[in-house]
């Protein structure tokens, strides 16, 4: 791409949207820095797609503003927002060739022919589809269609790139390849990008930051590590990655008494008496550690690099534990002891 700098930061302030009695967006605010890739992660019905449609201009919010590069675009029709978007099913024009599909946004902007030719060729080269110009979308594989959609969305130097669950229809292997490719392309072009997904693994792979949404509100917006290591609440902790979540009360500084009676040593400055949540990631357990658990295996799964065990421990605690796959897989009924250090326990 010759002319860069189309990309700009996005600022969403207090956007709300109701459909009848259903609140799809409840005063959502967030910002995406120029060149950043922000993932909006949430289950279906969380409002993430509505938020994307509001940004793209397909849905009019009941209130709030959307600013791109400092300019309020809330009142602009989609056609005048200069936002590139890749749809779930790509929404390629089935009657147009690959070349005509990619040239479409340039044609709409009345770009001169030689310039169009050059930019289309460049965009197709970027997604490694040079030589496919004359094909119709139906003559391409799913991955190739995806690349065409991507080329079409970036060929006109959009201010933003929106990706609406673009990998949903691809098989696992292809999905992983495409994820990396999109990431590389986005970095290379410095495109401000919003990526929508319900797949937390995908979110962790791709994002600079993740916004976790549920029921029309943003639960937490933070870097990938922060989201994983220090989730803000039950929902985020549960939705992102595997987790053991318990609730309890701070019995003393650095000690939590779980609702079942067991007390854990933690690192936390929460005051005594505060109601807290406790998160222990399954892979953070080791054979030794400050907090020890002895339990019986209820269920065990061999995962190649690790064992996944479900343990019934004393005090009615049930733990999900991952251990490096070494030796024989513990059978159901086997006695296992694990431990975890205070640093590995997240209190929220």
């Amino acid at each position: 791409m010759a002319a860069r700098g189309g990309s700009a930061e996005l600022l969403i302030e207090g956007v709300g949207k109701r459909f009848g009695d259903v609140v799809a967006l409840d005063h959502v605010s967030l910002s995406v820095a120029q060149g950043e890739l922000l993932t909006i992660l949430g289950p279906s019905g969380s409002g993430k797609t509505t938020l994307l449609k509001v940004v793209a201009g397909f849905e009019t919010p009941d209130g709030g503003t959307v600013k791109v590069g400092g300019t309020d675009i809330s009142a602009l029709p989609p056609a005048r927002r200069d936002i590139g978007m890749v749809f779930q099913n790509y929404a390629l024009f089935p009657h147009l060739s690959v070349k005509a599909n990619v040239a479409f946004p340039l044609e709409m902007r009345n770009v001169a022919k030689p310039e169009t030719e050059r930019r289309v060729a460049e965009a197709l080269a970027m997604v490694e589809l040079a030589g496919y110009e004359a094909r119709l979308p139906k003559q391409l594989s799913g991955g190739q269609q995806q690349r065409v959609a991507l080329a079409r969305a970036i060929v006109f130097n959009p201010r933003l790139l929106l990706l609406d669950e673009p990998f949903g229809a691809l098989d696992r292997k292809l999905r992983e390849t495409m994820q990396l490719e999109v990431r590389r392309l986005q970095r290379r072009l410095g495109l401000t990008t919003i990526f929508i997904t319900h797949d937390q693994e995908e979110a962790l792979v791709l994002s600079d930051r993740i916004a976790v949404m549920n029921k029309g509100t943003i639960q937490q917006i933070a870097t990938t590590t922060e989201i994983y290591e220090r989730p803000a609440n039950d929902f985020v902790a549960d939705f992102v990655g595997e987790s053991n979540i318990f609730h309890g009360t701070m019995s003393a500084p650095g000690a939590v008494t779980l609702d079942g009676g067991r007390t854990l040593v933690v690192r936390s400055d929460r005051q005594a008496g505060a109601k807290v949540g406790v998160l222990m990631r399954p892979e953070r357990f080791a054979s030794g550690g400050t907090n020890q658990f002895a339990g019986e295996v209820i269920e065990s799964v061999y995962l190649g690099t690790s064992f996944k065990l479900r343990l019934a421990c004393e005090g009615g605690l049930e733990l999900l534990v991952r251990q490096p796959a070494r030796g024989a897989l513990p059978a159901a009924g086997a006695k296992v002891a694990v431990g975890i250090d205070p640093e590995a326990i997240h209190v929220f």
Binding site: A79, R81, F93, M108
Partner: peptide, 10 residues
């Protein structure tokens, strides 16, 4: 989504 895509593309 197809006409919507066209609108989004300008």
């Amino acid at each position: 989504a197809i006409p919507a895509a066209a609108a989004g593309l300008g």
